[in-house]
Amino acid sequence: MTDSLKKERSNQKGAEQTTGASGALSLHSAAKSNWKDWLGLIPFFLFIFAFMVIPAGSLLVGAFQNRDGSFTLINFSHLLKPNIISSYLITIRLSATTALLGGLIGFLLAYAITIGGLPEGVRSFVSTFSGVASNFAGVPLAFAFISTLGRVGLVTVILKTVFGIDLYESGFNLYSFWGLALTYIYFQIPLMVLIIQPALDGMKKEWREASENMGASTFQYWFHIGIPVLLPSLLAALILLFGNAFGAYATAFSLTGGLINIVPILIGAQIRGDVLHDPNLGYAMALGMVLIMAITILAYSWLQKISSRWVK
């Protein structure tokens, strides 16, 4: 995912340079590369091994162990408990919802500042702001939404006093699914803007003109050309947004304090030993999370292969 993200983000000039440079370098190294070159990578791989491979591997092992350390599949049967299944479902629903809504709004915003013809100043402002907002998450973001849509939040109060709409009377709750979703969307939108912007920049205005010239309407242009051309980038972006929400812990933790049982919160609870402390079940849940992410990525690369068969 991240490498596709990288591809999306490196603008075309950069991409050409990359291929040019690495092409030249690979010739260079093909002549000279030998086993000694690999020695230079030892510190890095040691680090990766110690702090990525071992922790992940230990969870994998732990998921197949009981408390005494002997082999068992019981943890996975615990995964099938209704409350755990439902927490996976909620997490998936939350991630998918915020990816789609944040992705849609982010796409429209990115469209507006790229091919939408807004002034250059607007574009650089929105880009910078997106960089900030996509990093503005976790505890402060939760506070911001409490100040906005909490029971005494500004928007809640204004809606009530000025427009006579009582959000909380009508069933809204910031500490519920939709409250969390609205909060997540805050960082999903700018992330989408950042990811999809280069792809939109790559849309030639002549494609649109050519299609208009041949009698196509705006809808026909987007249906036959715009969307198909953007589809690989859109898929990549949506998957990234999905994963972004799926792994999020800090925002949910500080917003709901664990009221909504999304998977990261449950895993965190297992670690902190708050409730039903069962580390091995925790390992299995973590493994489940990793599996879902891995499946998502596989699905993505498969979809991308189909949707981009015309790409170089």
Partner: peptide, 22 residues
């Protein structure tokens, strides 16, 4: 009259072929 209704064929400098179509 919008371009779509003029029925004039146009060829662009950068070809402007739709990349997703054969």
């Amino acid at each position: 009259v919008p371009p779509a209704k003029r029925n004039l064929g146009m060829v662009f400098q950068n070809y402007a072929l739709f990349p997703n179509m054969t």
